[in-house]
């Protein structure tokens, strides 16, 4: 499974990279929505994108609408990971085509539980 982490914070990308890497994902990173779109236009085909909302250049909401406007990317799962917890923002993101919404701060289990719900991760019993 390939995951594209889209967040302007290197710290947050590092944390998500660790969580996803430990779960067996191949991770890729972008510092804003435009860089993420450029990567995908360049051939990167992520199974899931983890997307911050507030970023310079292109925010996460605009990225979601761009991805959903492109039929080639209809199978990409989109998961918002953001501090934006207003209900109207959550509704907007889901209406635009995001599948899941995680509010920062989060625990590794919260991320993995969402990925499991989306069928992208299966926890191996210890």
């Amino acid at each position: 499974m390939k995951a594209l982490i889209i967040d302007d914070s290197r710290a947050m990308r590092s944390i998500l990279r660790r969580i996803l890497g430990d779960a067996g994902f191949e991770t890729h990173e972008a510092e804003d929505g435009q860089v993420a779109l450029d990567l995908m236009n360049g051939g990167l085909a992520p199974d899931v994108c983890l997307i911050d909302w507030n970023m310079p250049v292109m925010d996460g909401y605009t990225f979601v609408t761009n991805v959903r406007d492109n039929q080639d990317w209809r199978d990409v799962t989109l998961m918002m990971v953001t501090t934006e917890s207003d209900s109207n923002r959550i509704v907007r993101a889901l209406a635009a085509g995001a599948h899941e919404y995680v509010i920062k701060p989060f625990t590794p289990d919260a991320i993995l539980d969402k990925l499991q719900l989306l069928g992208l991760f299966t926890e191996v019993p210890a």
Binding site: S9, R10, A11, M12, T82, S85, P105
Partner: peptide, 21 residues
């Protein structure tokens, strides 16, 4: 120093974002 700057930025982003909400 870049790591510290980024981490402090993310900490205040999370605190501020949740205060805003």
């Amino acid at each position: 120093q870049a790591d510290v700057s980024d981490a402090v930025g993310e900490l205040v982003n999370m605190v501020g974002g949740n205060v805003k909400c």
